[in-house]
Nucleic acid binder design. Structure first.
Lengths: 131, 131
DNA sequence: CTCCTTGGTTTCCAATAGGTAAGTATAGTT
DNA sequence: AACTATACTTACCTATTGGAAACCAAGGAG
């Protein structure tokens, strides 16, 4: 490894407290689990509020229980809002908050980089499989 | 939601194939699990090859078994190299690849953003706890 | 009086993750 | 002959995750 450019971009991590480090790690882990990111993307793509059932359809492959958990978690972290209209049958709408939108924006470069380097990953796996 | 700037930065996602989407999601999920990112950061901070035991010490709190699994996975994805020196007792060294280093660089802005917005997350949780 | 609807919650079960501890291989040291 | 060191691997056990499906509330329709 002789790569040097913007090494300090990584080294800022050294200036973090353990608490910050742990919290950031937790957020990243939580949000990059199987469903949360996809859920946020669905809500972003919708461009407005979505009812529970609509999210369920569009995310696809997720169970009711897990979607409920996911939405509650995202709400707790302030990334989405949950609005209950006390009708019968009840109507609940979920919507991306500005914070959630900003977060989603931050993930884009990483996302993009991974897709650009998809061939490199495939090659690495192929190489590893030979041995 | 009236935020509009660089909306297309997110919408590029729509141009992805399902395969790309799934793969990118998988990579992100894998690498942001409990140990992989931390392991990469340790190897980066070392600035050179590290033996298994040294990584074990520095990561801290990880078991031998899980570290082995983590390192193998990172190697398979081409983010680190594993070099076995056939001595007795055996010596094995792990080192960040340029791909691994680049990946780590990509995570920095997101990491940074999360830490900057830590107060917002804390506030959201506090708000949620009240209800 | 029963069914339908929505947005869950609850229960049960199977799969996965992760930890501890012990085993393994082998040359060198005591 | 016993012991050490290294880098795992294996066995075993527990805890968490996730899916399917049943249950629930409450008013309106038939």
């Amino acid at each position: 490894m002789t790569v040097q450019p913007s090494k300090q971009a990584i080294d800022f991590c050294a200036t973090m407290t353990d608490e910050q480090d742990e919290f950031a790690r937790e957020m990243l882990e939580r949000v990059s689990a199987k469903w949360p990111l996809r859920t946020l993307q669905i809500l972003q793509a919708a461009g407005g509020p979505l009812r529970f059932s609509r999210v369920l359809e569009r995310v696809g492959g997720i169970s009711q229980k897990v979607l409920t958990q996911t939405l509650r978690m995202l709400e707790r972290d302030g990334l989405i809002t949950r609005t209950l209209y006390p009708q019968v049958p009840p109507r609940v709408e979920y919507e991306l908050t500005p914070l959630g939108y900003e977060f989603l924006l931050q993930t884009v470069p990483l996302w993009h980089w991974i897709i650009e380097h998809l061939p490199a990953f495939t090659a690495a796996r192929h190489e590893a499989a030979k041995r």
